[in-house]
Amino acid sequence: MPATPDRSYERTLIWIIAAVLFACVLVGGGCLIEFLILPESKVPSWILVLGFFLLSLPWVFWLLTFLYQIFSRCCGRRIGFDVEKKGDGGSGGGATATGDDDGADVKPNANGIGRNLSVASHESQMPLAKSMAS
């Protein structure tokens, strides 16, 4: 029976990234508000630059994520992080083992590269069929 991989690390990583980006927005906004409210003589000159930098970090993150999606679809590969690695009896092998080795779970994608659907399902990223769109 194939073991299902634990996906809690992905959810934890998403929450950490969201918290960091949210903190950047709060601190950056605070820097800009401080620059606007306080007199010019009491505000350091770098506070405006820091505010704009921190407020732009979520946009840079979004842009890099967007470019990653485009390039990964063009190249036909995605970078994945497997937590559970099983080898052949402790020899340090690296392939993730789920199911039999006969390739029953492996289906080729549009580029002809096989992928294991039980491990890397990207159903939510597939476009809807025309019959479902209406």
Rank of each mutant, 00 (worst) to 15 (best):
R77K: 11
G93L: 07
S131M: 04
F66R: 05
K42P: 00
A120S: 07
P108D: 14
T12H: 03
S45F: 15
P39T: 04
F53E: 05
T65F: 09
I33R: 02
V83R: 09
V43W: 05
P44W: 00
T12D: 01
A95L: 13
W59R: 01
A18R: 05
P58N: 05
L63H: 04
S134M: 01
P44N: 02
P5I: 04
I113E: 07
V27H: 00
L117Y: 03
W46C: 00
A133M: 08
H122A: 03
A23S: 11
K42A: 09
P2L: 01
M1C: 03
W59A: 12
A133H: 03
A120R: 08
Q125R: 09
N116Q: 13
D100Q: 10
S124E: 12
A18P: 01
A110G: 00
D105F: 09
R7K: 15
W59P: 03
F22H: 05
I17L: 14
S118C: 00
S91Q: 10
K42Q: 12
D82K: 02
L38T: 06
V60W: 07
A97F: 11
L50K: 02
T98I: 07
N111C: 04
I70G: 01
L117W: 00
A129M: 12
A110S: 07
L21F: 06
G51N: 00
K130R: 11
L64M: 14
T4K: 08
C74K: 09
Q125H: 07
G94H: 11
Q69P: 00
V60T: 10
L21Y: 02
S91D: 12
W62D: 02
R11P: 00
S134E: 14
A18W: 01
N116F: 00
K86G: 05
A110Y: 10
G87H: 00
G112L: 11
A133L: 14
P108A: 15
H122I: 13
I37Q: 15
S121T: 06
A18E: 01
S118T: 14
L54A: 02
T65A: 14
I37E: 15
G29R: 11
S45C: 00
F66H: 13
